[in-house]
C-alpha cells in the first residue's frame, strides 16, 4: 500500500493549522503509517456497486419558519472571547503589512 512520508504529514499539519515540532512529526509519521495500513481494510469491500452512507438518517434540508427568536446577547456571545474590543472579537492581524 501507499506509504505516507514525513513531508506529507507536515503538509497535513499545515492544512489543519497545527504547529508541530520535529519530534511530533517524527512520531506521528510512524503512527500514521501503522494506522493507515490498518484502516485501508475498507478498500477490500468498497466496490463501485455499493452506495455510500454519509449519515444514519436520510436527511434533506431542514428548515424552520423565518421568525425572530431569542438569541445570545452581545455580552454573552463575547463572554468567552480571548480578547474583545468595543463589542467585537479582537483578533490578531489577518493581512500582512503592505
Amino acid at each position: 500500500m501507499a506509504g505516507i512520508s514525513r513531508e506529507e504529514v507536515a503538509n497535513l499539519a499545515r492544512l489543519a493549522r497545527i504547529q508541530m515540532s520535529d519530534e511530533e512529526l517524527d512520531h506521528l509519521s510512524g503512527e500514521m503509517q501503522v494506522i493507515l495500513s490498518a484502516v485501508a481494510k475498507v478498500q477490500e469491500v468498497a466496490n463501485s456497486d455499493v452506495p455510500p452512507t454519509s449519515h444514519p438518517i436520510p436527511i434533506t434540508n431542514v428548515t424552520r419558519e423565518d421568525v425572530v427568536t431569542k438569541s445570545l446577547t452581545v455580552e454573552q456571545a463575547l463572554s468567552g472571547a480571548p480578547k474583545k474590543s468595543e463589542d467585537r472579537f479582537q483578533v490578531p492581524q489577518i493581512l500582512g503589512e503592505e
Partner: peptide
C-alpha cells in the same frame, strides 16, 4: 488525510460504503 483530494475515494469514500 482521508478527506484530501486524491485520497478521498480510497479512504473516506470507501468507509462510507462500508457503512452501507
Amino acid at each position: 488525510y482521508a478527506l484530501s483530494s486524491g485520497y478521498y475515494d480510497a479512504y473516506y469514500g470507501s468507509a462510507q460504503k462500508v457503512r452501507t
